[in-house]
Design a protein around this nucleic acid. Structure first.
Length: 269
DNA sequence: GATCTATGTAGAT
DNA sequence: TCTACCTAGATCG
């Protein structure tokens, strides 16, 4: 689940459910208990996301910072309060709903200065209005590192994960090993605009869909994708299956410890 | 029941 | 480049 769109969707949801009201914050599992007591019962001022980071702002002295990592999830339930199931790191209880956080890589209370330090390390986020894509291009155009690695570097761009990386490179016919300094500014503008489009749609529908209408199962007669992550994609986790455009089996390898997927015909070196 | 895997990142080597 | 870490669902035997 957790690429940037997931966090922005959660921020939006938490803003609606909890902001402006006192919230009960607890840690049924216990690992967040001491920090939860710092914000328990206070009014949640606002929820916002930057890249894959979620912030629950209670005041200048206390913002809950959540990073879901690979496995983290937030589950929302309507009241009444029920017994927590599984390992619930943080539970928020508001006037109408509760939210249970499981498996985050990060869940901590920070001061405004500490939040600023976290955010200072993040590159422009295609889902934020205040994002400056030129900052991302400045890094990319100076680097010989493969574009596939740069896109996942959160100090270059914030919020892009393995699915959006694979899909945006496919949609623009860019080979993943292309060095950053071979990406010209016109191509960068296209990649950025496409990330904005795809990720906004991801926030809207709650899953990652990147396939153009003419290549969808309904248009081509192929069976829809059955995958835990749910959306329709061109190459992500489609190793060995025919490319939706040219039929070449989708290639896969590992790069910097992450799975990489591409079409060797549509994305030539 | 055991094992594998994942949309992520930090820190050690 | 490696390892550790957080969790739950899918798959294997």
């Amino acid at each position: 689940m957790p690429e940037g769109h997931t966090l922005h969707r959660l921020a939006r949801l938490h803003q609606r459910r909890f902001a402006g009201k006192p919230v009960e914050v607890s840690s049924p599992q216990g690992r967040f208990a001491a920090s939860a007591s710092l914000v328990d019962g206070r009014v949640l001022e606002r929820a916002e996301a930057h890249g894959k980071h979620l912030f629950h702002v209670y005041g200048p002295d206390a913002t809950v910072h959540v990073h879901l990592g690979l496995w983290g999830t937030f589950a929302e339930l309507p009241l009444p309060v029920t017994t927590p199931v599984g390992q619930v790191r943080m539970r928020l209880v508001g006037p109408t709903h509760l939210a249970d956080l499981r498996g985050p890589t990060r869940c901590e209370v920070l001061t405004d200065d500490e939040v600023a330090a976290v955010r200072a390390r993040l590159g422009p986020d295609p889902l934020r209005r205040d994002a400056d894509p030129a900052r991302g291009f400045a890094r990319i155009s100076r680097s010989r590192v493969p574009i596939a690695v740069l896109l996942l570097d959160q100090t270059v761009l914030a919020g892009v994960g393995n699915v959006y990386r694979a899909e945006v490179l496919f949609r623009h016919g860019v080979h993943p090993l292309t060095p950053g300094n071979r990406i010209d500014s016109a191509l960068w503008d296209l990649l950025w605009a496409d990330l904005v489009l795809l990720m906004r749609e991801g926030v809207r529908v709650g899953r990652i869909d990147t396939v153009r209408p003419e290549h969808l199962p309904e248009a081509t007669g192929r069976p829809p994708r059955q995958d835990r992550h749910g959306g329709e994609v061109y190459v992500y986790r489609r190793t060995g299956q025919p490319c939706l455009i040219c039929g070449t089996p989708v290639a896969a390898s590992e790069l910097s410890g992450r799975n990489l997927y591409w079409c060797s015909t549509c994305q030539p070196e």
